[in-house]
């Protein structure tokens, strides 16, 4: 290989360029740290605002994530209960059961006959003796259907319910755990709300960072002009500001993370208590490593983008006189 050595004894070519590049970035990074230090109070304020803006959507995300885990851990699936007319015989009910078993949207069908229903009721209600006094069994037969999971929350579920309700033998058809189904739908709505909220707050973070950077550019007009006068390129002048934006974003993410840890710590005990009451294995969880990484990438990305927007225009416009 034919490598020359320059005055500093560094090999020319790729390595040398890499070294220059690294040292320029290192210097820009140091510069931006210096800037941060010089106006510490103001910068901490910005970072706090950014942190809270990021903590809000991240917190909602955590809440939904936990709620979803609760739903997933729900023992017992959502069922459709078909209450048949009292005059429908057990044999007829069994035929209906066979028919519905072949339905595309239904996974499983269980028949609870009048007698079974009465037995169960006697056992659990404590009214056993009182019921013995009745001449006739007042309870109807019932079919418990387990629809496919993907059907439950969609229009298909409603259509299925309506279809079943129209069967002549059926008195009423209803989702067994109506509120669980409602909760799932509400979760869907909230998820969208979180997306919207995140978008708004991201724009807010962009504006905050952009404005902070714009201010520090304005404060350094004189210095920028002199740098340009002696041959600094726009890229050279922009670099420390871009690093500042990146640092704001990442510091904001870190703060948001700490706020989340604090919030989960506060919520943990009562939530776990509640779960125990319901015999649930559920435990409140915070962000995992991957989610934390995403939070930092989003924060850093917003910081970089926000400062990039501010820097492009304002530094180009600052010329020596």
């Amino acid at each position: 290989m034919n490598k020359r050595r320059n005055r500093n004894g560094v090999t020319d070519g790729f390595n040398y360029k890499m070294k220059v590049w690294l040292s320029q970035h290192n210097q820009a990074f140091q510069d931006s740290l210096g800037q941060l230090q010089r106006n510490l109070a103001g910068n901490l304020f910005s970072i706090a605002v950014i942190g809270i803006s990021l903590a809000l959507p991240a917190g909602f995300y955590l809440l939904l994530d936990n709620a979803q885990k609760v739903m997933e851990n729900w023992d017992g699936t959502i069922q459709i209960a078909l209450y048949l007319h009292p005059e429908v015989s057990d044999e007829r009910a069994d035929t209906i059961k066979q028919e519905l078993s072949g339905h595309a949207l239904i996974e499983q069908v269980t028949l609870i006959t009048k007698d079974q229903a009465l037995q169960e009721y006697k056992q659990f209600s404590g009214f056993g003796d009182a019921l013995d006094a009745l001449e006739e069994n007042p309870l109807p037969s019932m079919l418990l259907l387990q629809p496919r999971t993907e059907v439950i929350t969609t229009e298909q579920g409603e259509a299925l319910l309506e279809e079943l309700g129209k069967l002549p033998e059926v008195e009423t058809a209803q989702f067994d755990r109506q509120w669980v189904k409602r909760l799932i739908v509400i979760l869907h709505i909230l998820k969208r709300a979180v997306v919207i909220l995140s978008t708004f707050l991201s724009v807010a973070v962009l504006l905050i960072i952009g404005n902070t950077i714009r201010l520090s550019i304005t404060n350094k007009r004189h210095e920028i002009a002199i740098n340009k006068l002696f041959g600094a390129t726009n890229a050279f002048i922009q670099r420390p500001f871009l690093y500042s934006g990146l640092i704001y974003g990442i510091a904001g993410s870190a703060l948001a993370w700490m706020l989340l840890i604090l919030s989960t710590a506060i919520m943990k005990d009562p939530v776990n208590q509640l779960a125990t009451l319901y015999n649930s294995e559920f435990r409140l969880s915070g962000l995992n490593a991957f989610e934390l990484l995403i939070l930092i990438v989003i924060g850093g990305g917003l910081g970089l983008f926000g400062s990039w927007i501010a820097v492009g225009r304002h530094i180009r416009d600052t010329e020596p006189t």
Partner: peptide, 20 residues
């Protein structure tokens, strides 16, 4: 960007010094 490179071949001095 050639403006920046061009200015590196020039030294400026001002009455008001313009130091940082």
């Amino acid at each position: 960007n050639r403006i920046a490179l061009f200015r590196r071949s020039i030294g400026f001095m001002f009455q008001d010094h313009r130091l940082l």
